[in-house]
Structure formats: C-alpha cells, structure tokens
C-alpha cells in the first residue's frame, strides 16, 4: 500500500530523492556506509578530512571507533576490499567541526564515488552529474573547476615557506598579498610575473584558458590544459558550459587529489554546497591501485535557506 508521500517531504528531502534518482539513472548504485568507522582511518588521513577534531569512543572490545567526519574514505576503503570498478552513491550524515561556531555539527550529505579506471568519459560524466545536482538545488548555480597539477608545477622550485605564503594568497585571491610576499624573494622575474597572474585566474573558460596558456612551463602543464580544453569543448557541445567556470584558486592537498577538482555554489547559500574531484592518491594511500573520482553535496543549509 504505497501512498503518495510527496506532500510531507521538505525541500532538502525532495532534493535528496531527486538526486538519488539522477544517480541511479546514471548507473550508480546505493551503498550504505558503516555507522561507526575505525578512528585510525581518519587519524592517518587527517589532511583529507580537514581541520577540526573527530568524535571518538571506545567500542565494547576496546577498539577506538569514531562518528564519521567524512564518507569518501569509508566508501573507498569498502570498495577497494570488494575490488573491481564500482559506481556508488550514498546518503549519510557526517560529524565535523563547524568553522564558524567551532562546535561539532551533523551534516547531511549525499554523494557519489566512481572507483576504478577513470577515463575522459567518466570524468565528463561526473562533471555533468555535478552540474545536474546543482541545477536540482537552484536555478542560479556555478561550478568552479580547477586542476591540482596545473599550478603546482610553478611552485616546484620554491622553498616551503615561500611556497606556502604564495599558496595562501592565491587561495585568498590577494594580488597585493603575493606582491608583498614576492617583494624580497630571490626568484627569477619571469616566475614572479607568472605567480602574480595566479590570483586572477578565475572566470569563464573562454577568458581564462588563454591566460593560463601563458603560465605553461612544462609538458605536464601543457597536457593538463589540453585536457581542460577538451572538457570545455564537451561542456559546450552538451550545452552545459554556461554555468561552468575555471578557478585555479581552488587548491587541494596533493597527497590525496590528483587531477580535476571542483566546487559548486548556489546563489541562495553562503557557503560551498558541492565539492569533489579526482583522488587517485587517496586510493594509493588506502592500498589500492586504480583511480577514483566523486563529489558530495551538503544538504543541511538547503533545508534552511533555499
């Protein structure tokens, strides 16, 4: 006796079901992450989980468990032990520290992971699904795309303190900050000029790709640009390019991420609602060999504000 429950669902529940429908239709199958995960998984991968503590407790057998601060690690670990190529999605709650209140909060998340060989087609599929997810939440949305490898080549010759200071200012989009940091730095003027371009490298693909071209100093950077151009062409042909942007100010930990990374925003919400990327290095850390790519959507704020 199935009834129509639509009228009792709130906005974020409706969105959750709409997203599940989209992911199912794209061939992703539901996975139910474990409720409690071993704490060491997050302690060993602190930089992937991000800042803030983990809620831990001791199980009846003395094992230290935790309330998950992240779902990806748990899902990837499980998928690797099962082996093979897997396309999975989940809907779950994570517990992490709110950067604003500095207290723990439970965040409702829905996300997907493609674990196995990631080729151009699977990358395009995931970017498309990210755009579709955003569109489901709001008509006013933007997906910012970056690539972890592109600007890291520019930093190779820099000493760590200088590299960190430049990185920090690229994230802040602070040209004056980089100017200050580079003032007394002993590096080639040509490299300084390139680094000064970085905070402004965000906007439409068609505007930013030619600027990024000027930064290329290695074959690796050239390859990355070729890939980004191909992705852009795909988005143009699929009619999805209007809301996709490039932003090289999105930087993630290289020890986990390995390729394209992205962030989604909707106009009604004041923080990032979707984030994801390619994280082959995480797979390697967990003892796997293939690739992995995915994203997660935060559902909490949607309920309150959209």
């Amino acid at each position: 006796m199935m009834q129509n429950f639509m009228n009792i669902l709130n906005r974020s529940e409706l969105i959750e079901f709409a997203l599940r429908d989209i992911y199912e239709k794209a061939g992703f199958s539901a996975v139910r992450p474990v409720k409690f995960e071993r704490a060491e998984l997050y302690i060993d991968n602190k930089n992937f989980v991000g800042s803030g503590g983990i809620i831990t407790f001791m199980d009846t057998d003395g094992q230290l468990l935790s309330l998950k601060p992240d779902v990806t690690l748990s899902v990837v670990k499980k998928a690797l032990s099962a082996g093979g190529c897997q396309k999975l999605y989940y809907s779950d709650e994570v517990c992490r520290m709110s950067p604003v209140s500095r207290k723990y909060e439970a965040i409702r998340q829905i996300g997907l992971e493609h674990i196995g060989d990631i080729d151009r087609q699977s990358t395009e599929e995931i970017i498309t699904l990210a755009l579709k997810s955003l569109k489901t939440i709001s008509d006013d949305y933007i997906l910012d795309i970056s690539h972890v490898g592109f600007i890291s080549d520019l930093f190779k010759g820099l000493e760590k303190p200088l590299r960190d200071a430049v990185f920090e200012n690229v994230i802040l989009k602070s040209r004056h900050g980089i100017t200050g940091v580079l003032e007394n730095a002993e590096i080639a003027d040509s490299l300084k000029e390139k680094l000064l371009i970085l905070p402004g490298l965000h906007g439409k693909f068609s505007d930013i790709l030619p600027q990024a071209e000027k930064l290329v100093i290695s074959a690796e950077m050239e390859n990355i640009l070729t890939d980004l151009k191909a992705l852009y062409n795909y988005l143009v042909n699929a009619g999805l390019s209007k809301t996709a942007r490039l932003d090289f100010g999105i930087i993630n930990d290289l020890s986990y991420y390995s390729g394209i990374i992205f962030r989604g925003y909707v106009k009604e919400l004041s923080s990032v609602v979707l984030s994801g990327g390619r994280y082959d290095n995480l797979v390697r850390k967990l003892g796997g060999t293939g690739g992995a790519m995915g994203f997660a959507v935060k559902l909490n704020e949607i309920e309150e504000r959209v």
Partner: peptide, 10 residues
C-alpha cells in the same frame, strides 16, 4: 568579499 557573492556578483 564573501566567497559565494564573489562568484555571483563578480
């Protein structure tokens, strides 16, 4: 600037 406003009111 707010990070989201910077995107939508760029």
């Amino acid at each position: 600037s707010n990070k989201i406003s910077f995107k939508f009111k760029n």
